[in-house]
Design a protein around this nucleic acid. Structure first.
Length: 712
RNA sequence: GGGCCCGUAGCUCAGCGGUAGAGCAGAGGACUCAUAAUCCUUUGGUCGCAGGUUCGAGUCCUGCCGGGCCUACCA
């Protein structure tokens, strides 16, 4: 096969946060692919950078009282350190806040202007007069204009799901300064991607550029209609690059971020004397982007337009992966599953995560689940039990000696495994690492079976059969070496260890085709430790974030206080509230878990007057029925005594049988504003405890309470 | 409201028109070289539900149910 020239990128991590195990799916996936390509003898360069611009960084710098440059420099160092810890090796790890990027942005901008794709229009946006900045939707909070839910973001309500513009929010305020935002108009620059509609239709649908699911989605979601103009500028103040000839206007962070791929390449070229045009303006160079599914449309619509217009190489392929879940759920800070890369490294071996992710990754967009028990089982069962064990159980018999000079009869095992090389390579090439790992583990199974059948431990007891023993170990170690080579993209450390053990380099895929003979066998050294669930759980514990410091109570949560955090002293764990303290002492046998409180920390203090505004009543359920079109709702009729009835919708379907509710007493929030729902109007709500889902527990008064009585 | 993806053994998944598969877990046995590793045997599924196309359907088509994601006067 002729040597390919390949440039690979991973998405640029944002400089506003640390690398976590969710990020690592992508960087490990990419790093494996890059290592695989090099092993195959191709020229392959891995480029990445920090994404540093935008409002969030600006705000953070203000809050921390330092410059944006200081913020991003610190984060850059942290990112580089975390990646290195997981054996992720870039040829260049740059920053979008670089001179190279500024120049390239200007160059591409100019090309877009020349092509007549840039237009200017007024955009009205909320403006914070105190902070002196325009506000992105997420920096505005207020009361939902539809359902009246308090403290909602500027773009949509997470209570009733309605969407609206930030200016519709009732009592809107800026989360930056608390000021009331005002509407201000400012000119913005837009790119008319519609002009390249035909090009995009062709490029996104031509075979190989995108996974077919993605191509499908892009076609249906975007290309079936005229493309909207893309807003690519922001008015000052903004942390980014000012647009040439447009003072006071900055490129939007998503404009300069992908250009960072090119800028970082340019840095690498300048440092290593590579001709830049060979990498970004050459028909034979393959550009491969690895991204998460959340940023698909930036990379499949806007980005190709920018490259096309400015005359750069288009991506050969955009590889898209799904999100990480842990235990089947989104990563959660309160559950401790939001694990930072640095925290992982304190407790566990990076090779384990590389292998686990590899074993789960496919070319599809499915989310990938990290199941902690499976993680331990896979690492121990596959890597330690099957692979490393192969060397561990045979190398000792020949250490200090050499492998046999001629390759012994092995029943065709070596040539079979050599022949598998192509299938394994195809799987790596297609990013079907799951399949690759499966094929490799099957080889390990076969090799262990061989060892089992030849019983080297029996041969070792009989000095007259030393030659036979050497032969058996020669076969086993050669099979092991093939496996280590096939696993090398995933486990670079094992690759090095194997080269040392057998005193022969292990750097090219073809080395799996010829057995190694006559070389010295070094004393066997431990290659990979076993994973222990205790250490995994310790990592989870350390990752479990204390709830925001809402109260002394919340701060005292459990024993999971993070080192270095401003933890309260241990004595604050005891409730200070008089009444509950008394109860707690008399009920000493109860040991209640800390998790529920941690999951929903205490709210800010309110006055008695605030509390008394909520009119809670005892009510009797007089009818309950299923709402057929709804997933969660039951329709309840409540009696407040006499002939006062109310209808409420309660999200307890599947938790309570409607029939079982009729007749019972509940606690009812009576003066809550009515809420219009798809199935009718809900007049208030019934009170229940629990986080939701199936964990819902209706409140009841003690016997004797009468419907209509107020709860004080 | 619309769109996309997914729903195969307890778990993670492969198979995508021709007699239901793998790994792990479970059960029984063997071995003792090895990081309580390995090997053999074995239990286990009306392939979400209902129709249709076909000589034949996890595999193609339609509808429905369930899960996830995306997007909302629009695909």
């Amino acid at each position: 096969m002729s040597q390919r020239r390949i440039l690979v990128t991973s998405a640029l991590p944002y400089a506003n946060g640390h690398i976590h195990i969710g990020h690592l799916v992508e960087y490990i996936q990419t790093d494996i692919w890059v290592r695989f390509q090099r092993l195959r003898g191709h020229r392959c360069v891995y480029i990445c950078a920090d994404d540093t611009h935008g409002t969030a960084i600006m705000i953070r710098a203000r809050q921390e009282g330092r410059s944006e440059e200081q913020v991003i420099a610190d984060m850059h160092a942290a990112h580089v350190r975390d990646f290195a810890g997981f054996h992720i090796e870039f040829d260049n790890y740059g920053s979008t806040h670089s001179e190279e990027n500024r120049q390239l942005c200007a160059e591409i901008w100019q090309a877009l202007c020349r092509a007549g794709l840039v237009v200017q229009r007024e955009v009205s946006q909320l403006y914070d007069p105190v902070a002196g900045t325009f506000l992105a939707d997420r920096f505005v909070r207020g009361t939902c204009p539809r359902c009246g839910a308090a403290d909602q973001f500027g773009d949509s309500c997470d209570r009733c799901g309605s969407t609206y513009s930030p200016s519709e929010l009732v009592g809107a305020r800026s989360t930056l300064s608390g000021a009331t935002p005002e509407v201000r108009a400012a000119p913005h620059f837009f790119i008319q991607t519609e002009q390249l509609h035909d090009f995009l239709a062709e490029w996104t649908q031509s075979a190989g550029h995108l996974h077919e699911d993605v191509a499908h989605w892009v076609a249906a979601a975007f290309l079936s209609q005229p493309l909207r103009d893309w807003d690519v500028s922001r008015p000052a103040p903004y942390f980014g690059f000012e647009i040439p000839d447009a003072p006071g206007h900055y490129w939007y962070v998503w404009f300069d971020a992908p250009i960072g791929y090119i800028a970082s390449t340019l840095q690498w070229c300048r440092r290593s004397g590579e001709p830049f045009d060979l990498w970004w303006r050459h028909p034979e160079t393959e550009i491969h982007h690895f991204i998460g599914k959340d940023i698909t449309y930036f990379h499949t619509l806007f980005w190709p337009v920018m490259l096309k217009v400015a005359g750069f190489n288009l991506p050969r392929q955009v590889h898209i992966h799904g999100f990480l879940t842990v235990g089947g759920e989104k990563m959660s800070k309160s559950k401790g599953t939001f694990v930072l890369a640095s925290t992982y490294l304190k407790h566990l071996d990076p090779a384990w995560l590389r292998y686990y992710y590899a074993s789960k990754l496919t070319p599809k967009l499915d989310d990938l689940d990290l199941n902690l028990e499976e993680f331990v089982a896979k690492v121990n069962g596959d890597l330690v039990g099957k692979v490393v064990n192969l060397a561990s159980r045979t190398a000792r018999f020949v250490q200090g000696g050499t492998l046999s000079a001629a390759y012994p009869e092995d029943g065709g095992l070596f040539s079979q495994a050599a022949a598998e090389g192509d299938a394994i390579a195809d799987a790596y090439e297609a990013c079907d690492y799951n399949r690759a790992m499966r094929l490799i583990m099957a080889l390990a199974d076969r090799a262990n079976r061989y060892v089992e059948s030849r019983e080297p431990w029996t041969l070792a007891r009989d000095p007259s059969r030393a030659g036979e023993l050497q032969d058996v170990c020669t076969v086993a170690l050669n099979l092991f070496r093939q496996i280590a080579l096939y696993l090398a993209p995933v486990l670079p450390t094992l690759q090095k260890q194997t080269a040392e053990l057998l005193a022969a380099p292990l750097q090219r895929w073809e080395e799996a085709q010829r057995p190694l003979l006559g070389t010295a066998v070094a004393p066997f050294k431990h290659m990979l430790g076993r994973a222990d669930i205790k250490h995994v759980l310790a990592m989870i514990e350390e990752s479990r974030e204390q709830p925001a410091a809402a109260s002394p109570l919340a701060q005292g949560y459990g024993s999971t206080r993070q080192a270095g955090s401003v933890a309260s002293s241990a004595d604050s764990f005891a409730p200070r509230d008089d009444s509950s303290a008394g109860l707690a002492e008399s009920a000493a046998p109860h040991v209640d878990r800390a998790a529920p409180l941690a999951a929903e920390p205490l709210e800010a203090e309110i006055s008695f007057e605030d509390f008394s505004r909520i009119d809670l009543r005892v009510a009797r359920v007089i009818a309950a029925e299923d709402v057929p079109d709804s997933k969660k709702l039951l329709r309840l009729s409540l009696s407040l005594g006499g002939d006062v009835h109310r209808t409420v919708f309660a999200g307890i379907k599947g938790v309570y049988e409607p029939a079982s509710l009729v007749g019972r007493l509940v606690i009812y929030a009576a003066n809550l504003a009515p809420r219009q729902m798809r199935f009718g109007t809900s007049q208030g709500m019934v009170l229940a405890a629990g986080p939701g889902g199936k964990d819902i527990y209706l409140l009841s008064p003690d016997p004797g309470a009468q419907p209509g009585q107020r709860v004080h």
